[in-house]
Write a protein that binds this DNA or RNA. Structure first.
Length: 608
RNA sequence: GCCGGGGUAGCUCAGUGGCAGAGCAGCUGAUUCGUAAUCAGCAGGUCGUGGGUUCAACCCCCAUCCCCGGCUCCA
C-alpha cells in the first residue's frame, strides 16, 4: 500500500507540502505500516467521524479526536446519548464522505480569526483549545465543507480511508477531568484494507472468548458474589488448586533464592499507618478504621510496615544484609465501584510481596538478582516478552536529591548490565523512591503490568530502621519493595486469558480424565485413576452412562490436558496399552500405565 | 464516583400493562455405545432489592445494590 504522508527530519507533513519543502534533509514517505503513518490515517478517520456526526447531529459540539493505540475516538458534547442505531447511521454517513474522496486542505489563520470563527459556530471546546495554543497562528483542515482545528497532517483525501468501523460509545470527561463536563465519546478503528480490519475484529472476538470472567465461570475457577460484596473473590476448588500450585512454586523458589518467608496480620493500629505515612498519602485507598476497646485499628492496604517491624525485632548487623522478607500478603484497598473488573481490579487481593533491607552499595547487585528472579518466574508462566519502564522522581517526593540520583542510577545500571531494553518514564516514580515496572505481553500481544521493583527511602527513615556497620556506628539501610506477579488475583486473571483457560499440565486443576465406554469398564477405570493419583497425578473419572463422544467433549470443554479411554481392549490388555488423547484432539501412545505416568511427570516437572 | 447500557431458571438468552418461556446444565428412566453433544420424561422462578402509580406491574415511575463498556484512578 502506498504512502500518504511525509516525514521530513522527523516532522510529519501533508503529501501536498512536497513542492514547498526546501531542499534540505531527507524526505520520507510514510504508509500505514509505520506507527506514524497509522496515526495520521486514523486521525483522518476521526475527522471523517466528526464530519458525519455534525451532518447528522448539527447541535453536537466538537471536542477532541485523536488516534489511539488500535484506532481513534472523537468526543462530542450532545444533549442525548448515541445509540447503537446512531452508530450505524454515522458509519453510513462516513462511507458517503469517504466515497466522495474530497481532499483534505490545510489553511493557517491567526488565533484571533480562529476564535472568532469557532465562536460563531458555538464550538466552545475548540475555543478553549485554541486559547491554550502557544503560537499566534493555528492550522485548520477542511474537506468537503467540514472544517476542524487540527495540527495535521492528514491523508490527501477522504477516499484514502479503506476500512473503518465504529466500535462503541462511552462517557469521557472533557480534558479527562472528572470535575468537568462528561462528553460522549465514539470509539472506532480504521485499517488500510478490509482484510486487516476483519482480522482486527476477529482479534476482538478472540479477546472476548478468552475473557477471564467468562472462562472463570465456565471452568468453575472463581466467582464474585453480590451477597459478599463487589471486588471480593471466591476461589472455587479448581481456581484454588491452581493458586495453591502457583503458591507452592513461589514459596519454593523464594527459599532457594535467599528469601525468608513471613506472615503478618490483616490489621494493625491506626498509629502504625500514621507512622508509615499511608494515612497521609494513601488514605483515599484505605477503609475507615474500626474501634477495638477504644483504640482505632485499620485493615491493611500494604504489607511493608509489618515487614519493617520484623526487621526491627532485633539488632541487625551489616553482615546480615541483605535481609529479604517475602510474604503472600493479603491487602484490602478501597477502589471506586466503577473501576472494579473481574480479577483484574478488586478490593481484596494477595500480593506476592517482598521487602529487602540492604546497604546502599548492595542495591545494584540486589536489583540485578531481582530482575533475574522476576524473569525466571514470568518465563515459567509462559511470558517471554516484556516492556520495561524505569520511573524517575515525581514532583512530590521525599528523600534527598542525592539519594534519588544514586538509587535511580543503581536501577539503570542493573537494567543495563542485564542487557534489558527499557524506557524511562519521567516523573512516574512513587513519592518514596524510583522504580522499575515490568509489563508482560500475553499470547495475544497485550501488555499487563505485573512486576514492580521500588526503592524506598521513606520508610527506613520514618520507622528509624538501622543496622550496625563495620565501623560500629548505626546506619540506615535502603529498603527495596518488590512484587513479581503483582497480585495473585490479577495474575490469575491474566493467566486465564493468556492460556485461554487451557492451563499447562502442571497448573491444570484436573490433569487426566479417565473415561469409560460402557459401565462394565468402570472398575478398571477406577484402578487406572487410582494408579495415577498414587503418583500425585490429578486424575478424575467419568463413569456416567453416556457415549464416549459425549465424555470426550465434556473433558475437552473442561480443558483437561489428557483423557484416557477405557474400553474392552484396555481392560483385556490390563493397561499395557492405554488409549490417550490430548485436549487438542491429538492422540498419544498407546502407552502402558507406567509409561504414561513417566510422560506426565516429565511434563509436570518441566512446567511446560 | 461520573456517563451510557443492563439484571428474567445454575448458565446463555427470548418475552408482554392481563396464566412466566427456550436451549444447555440438573434429576429419573431407557440405551451399553471406541475419540467433541443418544432418546424420552420430570423438576426448576418473590422476573436484583425496596417503595410508588394502576382493578391489575416482570413490564410504567422513584430509590437502591450489583454487573457490563468507557472516563478518572490503579496491583
Amino acid at each position: 500500500m502506498g504512502v500518504f504522508v511525509l516525514s521530513v527530519e522527523g516532522r510529519l507533513l501533508d503529501m501536498g507540502a512536497l513542492k514547498e519543502i526546501p531542499a534540505v534533509g531527507t524526505v520520507q514517505g510514510l504508509a500505514f505500516s509505520s506507527t506514524e503513518g497509522r496515526e495520521v490515517y486514523r486521525h483522518s478517520a476521526s475527522h471523517i467521524l466528526a464530519h458525519a456526526v455534525k451532518e447528522l447531529f448539527p447541535q453536537a459540539k466538537l471536542a477532541i479526536g485523536p488516534a489511539i493505540e488500535d484506532g481513534f475516538y472523537y468526543d462530542f458534547d450532545i444533549d442525548r446519548p448515541f445509540s447503537p442505531e446512531d452508530l450505524a447511521a454515522i458509519e453510513k454517513k462516513m462511507a458517503e464522505i469517504i466515497k466522495k474522496n474530497s481532499p483534505f486542505t490545510r489553511r493557517e489563520i491567526s488565533k484571533k480569526e480562529a476564535l472568532e470563527m469557532f465562536g460563531k459556530m458555538g464550538e466552545i471546546y475548540k475555543m478553549e483549545l485554541i486559547e491554550a495554543l502557544p503560537d499566534e497562528t493555528v492550522s485548520l483542515y477542511e474537506e468537503n465543507g467540514f472544517t476542524d482545528l487540527c495540527r495535521g497532517p492528514h491523508v490527501p483525501g477522504t477516499g484514502r480511508i479503506k476500512a473503518v468501523k465504529l466500535l462503541s460509545v462511552a462517557g469521557a470527561y472533557w480534558r479527562g477531568d472528572e470535575k468537568r463536563k462528561m462528553l460522549q465519546r465514539i470509539y472506532g478503528t480504521a485499517f488500510d484494507s478490509k482484510e486487516d480490519l476483519k482480522k482486527y475484529l476477529e482479534f476482538l472476538e478472540e479477546v472476548k472468548k478468552r475473557d477471564h470472567r467468562k472462562l472463570g465461570r465456565e471452568l468453575d475457577l472463581f466467582s464474585i458474589n453480590e451477597e459478599i460484596g463487589a471486588g471480593l473473590i471466591l476461589w472455587h476448588p479448581n481456581g484454588a488448586l491452581i493458586r495453591k500450585t502457583i503458591e507452592d512454586f513461589w514459596r519454593g523458589e523464594h527459599l532457594k533464592t535467599g528469601y525468608k518467608l513471613i506472615f503478618s496480620p490483616h490489621m494493625a493500629k491506626l498509629d502504625l499507618w500514621r507512622r508509615s505515612g499511608h494515612w497521609d498519602f494513601y488514605r483515599e485507598n484505605m477503609y475507615s478504621p474500626m474501634e477495638v476497646e477504644g483504640v482505632e485499628y485499620e485493615i491493611k492496604p500494604m504489607n511493608c510496615p509489618f515487614h519493617i517491624e520484623v526487621y526491627k525485632s532485633s539488632l541487625r548487623s551489616y553482615r546480615e544484609l541483605p535481609i529479604r522478607y517475602a510474604e503472600l500478603g493479603t491487602v484490602y484497598r478501597f477502589e471506586r465501584s466503577g473501576v472494579l473488573h473481574g480479577l483484574l481490579r478488586v478490593r481484596g487481593f494477595t500480593q506476592d510481596d517482598a521487602h529487602i533491607f540492604a546497604r546502599e552499595d548492595q542495591i545494584e547487585d540486589e536489583v540485578q538478582r531481582i530482575l533475574d528472579f522476576t524473569l525466571f518466574v514470568l518465563n515459567t508462566f509462559g511470558f517471554y516478552n516484556y516492556d520495561i519502564y524505569l520511573s524517575t522522581r515525581p514532583e512530590k517526593y521525599v528523600g534527598s536529591d542525592e539519594n534519588w540520583e544514586r538509587a535511580t542510577n543503581a536501577l539503570r545500571l542493573a537494567l543495563e548490565k542485564k542487557g534489558l531494553k527499557y524506557a524511562v518514564d519521567p516523573g512516574e516514580g512513587v513519592f518514596y523512591g524510583p522504580k522499575i515496572d515490568i509489563k508482560v505481553k500475553d499470547s495475544l500481544g497485550r501488555a499487563w503490568q505485573c512486576s514492580t521493583i521500588q526503592v524506598d527511602f521513606n520508610n527506613p527513615e520514618r520507622f528509624d530502621v538501622t543496622y550496625r556497620g563495620s565501623d560500629g556506628q548505626e546506619h540506615r539501610p535502603i529498603m527495596i519493595h518488590r512484587a513479581l506477579m503483582g497480585s495473585l488475583e490479577r495474575f490469575f486473571g491474566i493467566l486465564i486469558e493468556h492460556y485461554a483457560g487451557a492451563f499447562p499440565l502442571w497448573l491444570a486443576p484436573a490433569q487426566v480424565d479417565v473415561l469409560t465406554i460402557a459401565e462394565r469398564h468402570a472398575e478398571f477405570a477406577l484402578k487406572v485413576a487410582e494408579a495415577l493419583r498414587a503418583e500425585g497425578i490429578r486424575a478424575e473419572t467419568n463413569l456416567e452412562n453416556e457415549k464416549i463422544n459425549y465424555k470426550i467433549r465434556i473433558s475437552a470443554m473442561r480443558k483437561t490436558p489428557y483423557s484416557v479411554i477405557i474400553g474392552d481392549k484396555e481392560v483385556s490388555e490390563e493397561g499395557s496399552a492405554l488409549s490417550i488423547r490430548k485436549r487438542s484432539g491429538e492422540t498419544v501412545g498407546p502407552l502402558s500405565i507406567s509409561g504414561f505416568i513417566e510422560l506426565l511427570k516429565d511434563e509436570i516437572n518441566s512446567r511446560r
